[in-house]
Design a protein around this nucleic acid. Structure first.
Lengths: 212, 212, 212, 212
DNA sequence: TATGAATGAGCCTTCATTCAT
DNA sequence: TATGAATGAAGGCTCATTCAT
């Protein structure tokens, strides 16, 4: 029950606020039932609007799925960007992003679950997330921190690892150190020395949160 | 349209043949629509039987999903086991399995797609596949070939990488060397030297196929 | 086609009117096919609404069965109560109730048939009807009009007699004096003298009707 | 698990024996599920024959319902006739028949339940049972034992009372003396004096059984 | 006759979407 | 825009019945 969209739309017009309520409701329903199984009626009900109202704001179910997913991704990206402002080194940045993403998704299980599900359903979203991640990796290569040839495959493999990590955490099959372990693996895959990988990947981490 | 199950059931009773036809049809439908979206009616239609016939052979959709998925996994495992009989070294085996799995799934796109989807939907299947993969990894650790602590997380990350690779190949986003590149990454993650990883992962590979 | 519920809901909201249409339709279908054999689709069709509409108003078939049956029973009871306000003597009341019930059920054959079927299918309904009947019987015992020990069995036997009478009338196997004859039997079973039983049970009866 | 039909067909041809097995199975299924809900497959399975075999013996489900019901009724009638050979007085006979019928149906609950259900579904069966009961009643009138005008209605009311009694006993709502109480009511309805009704209806009764 | 696989109509129910108010 | 009733196309599943063996 995060109401992220609603809290942000507090000062906008009524229409925008209703739309935001629907999106918040959708996140919850997607998380609870999965995207496919989520029904428009249920979303409307959770948003406390009549079902017909839904269609004043979204063309169809696909549209809200997309809106929610991309908005979530954008939010996460913005949050990470903001938090990484002071991080210079590419390995620090990559590790930080991997770990925080996993933690964010885990600490807001509804969002996490919905996001994992959405990435799976929306190729465009996956590509966007990958592109975001790739920026820092390319930077590391330019700076000589990473000593591998970087290509799309590597980035997609990283994405799959992160998604798997989120999934495992949400299932309760892995614990709080998952992010660090995944990050360490990734740094090593990028050619960072074992020692430095271990050091960087296990730094103390201040938890982020999506809502202030 | 591979009709793998049907071709294998050619000499069995009528019931078994119809069942096999349904399973083959299911593979196709799962690949085309995804497992969730697949409908029993569609499967029956694809198998060219009346919808009621489906229920003479499977209790419900879940049952055919399970049957198909585990049969596919079993087949792949058996095929790999057979082909790996002469491989001794754990790194050779791990690399071989990763590459051949990706190639098998890619060369029979319907199977590949259905299998990827199935692993995602059936936790039990994922666990089984992981366990299978883990055997060789543990062996490598015992033999001193791999120099890492192996845990469930690592194996699951490997699984996610392979699935992603299959997915990308099926989408046409990656090419024929994908398997080798993934295998190389994995060997390096297991502590194999860069040089050996490159050598082992890129060996010439004789394609396998599921049907003879 | 009595449309009893609909006519009563004429001034209510659209939802209530549709619901009433469905209930009227259900009465007809129950009467024609029997409650078990009645299908939701058929009810919806008879009510001239889309099948999906049914489920906007009733959770499932059981719910409409219950609603219809208890509403019918309640209506009949209310109608009888009102008509019996001036009747003091328990034998007069019992006779009146038996006869009017049979006449009501007969004069609205669909209702009658559905009600008989419903009493048979819904134990709770049977108990409710029995309890209603029992009140007057107990009163007669207290007043010394009836000279038997009253127990559940007796009341249930009365119920079975009335149901049988309705059934026979609906089948056309018995005529207009059925109610009087049954009432006479019942009074005698309650210990009323033959002479008085005959006199009371055969009084002229003003027909009631469920709709005004 | 009475296998009444089967035990009687022991010495007949194979076909007759299969048919008997089906009928016995049907009794059980009807009792367990109700006649409407009983499925042909279930009957065949209970009879341990292939479902197709059913249709070698019965045109359709209705036919086995009828066969079973009438056979059961015939059996009960025969059993009662035999047991009543030495009873001369009509009131004794009527009371005996009522009570034994209730006891038979109760002591073989499967049969009882199926029979009650069948009478409800098959008007012809009801008529046959009524006709059987009427013989003794008419005899009582001729002999001057019963002092009422007997007509179809009365007999049908008797039938309804007996069915209700069986039903209540099967439901566990009434006890072992139900038969006697019903018989007493009936005798009084027939004009027998209260004293004699009580005496005759409560005679000690030797239980019958359908299978020897 | 016996078998049991196959058939397909039909039932219940859900749900995205439309539409009159 | 909001409402919420209505729609009707699917989907899952059952079951009486047929039919080839």
């Amino acid at each position: 029950m995060q109401a992220v969209f609603a809290s942000r739309a507090r000062d906008e017009g009524k229409s925008a606020r209703t739309r935001a309520r629907l999106m918040d409701a959708a996140v919850g329903v997607f998380a609870r039932e999965g995207i496919e199984a989520a029904s428009v009626n249920e979303i409307a009900q959770a948003a406390d609007v009549a079902n017909g109202t839904f269609y004043n704001h979204f063309k169809d179910k696909d549209e809200i799925v997309g809106s929610v997913a991309f908005a979530m991704a954008r939010d996460v990206a913005a949050r990470l960007d903001e938090a990484m402002q002071d991080l210079e080194d590419a390995d620090e940045r990559t590790s930080f992003a991997t770990r925080q993403f996993i933690e964010l998704a885990t600490s807001a299980p509804e969002w996490g679950r919905a996001l994992v599900d959405a990435v799976w359903h929306l190729p465009a979203l996956r590509r966007q997330v990958s592109a975001y991640a790739r920026a820092d990796i390319d930077r590391g290569v330019r700076d000589g921190v990473f000593k591998v040839e970087v290509d799309d495959l590597l980035v997609d493999l990283f994405a799959s690892m992160v998604l798997m990590a989120v999934f495992l955490r949400l299932e309760g099959e892995e614990g709080a150190d998952t992010g660090a372990r995944v990050a360490e693996h990734q740094l090593r895959m990028l050619g960072v020395s074992a020692a430095r990988a271990k050091r960087v990947a296990w730094r103390t981490l201040t938890p982020l949160s999506l809502v202030e």
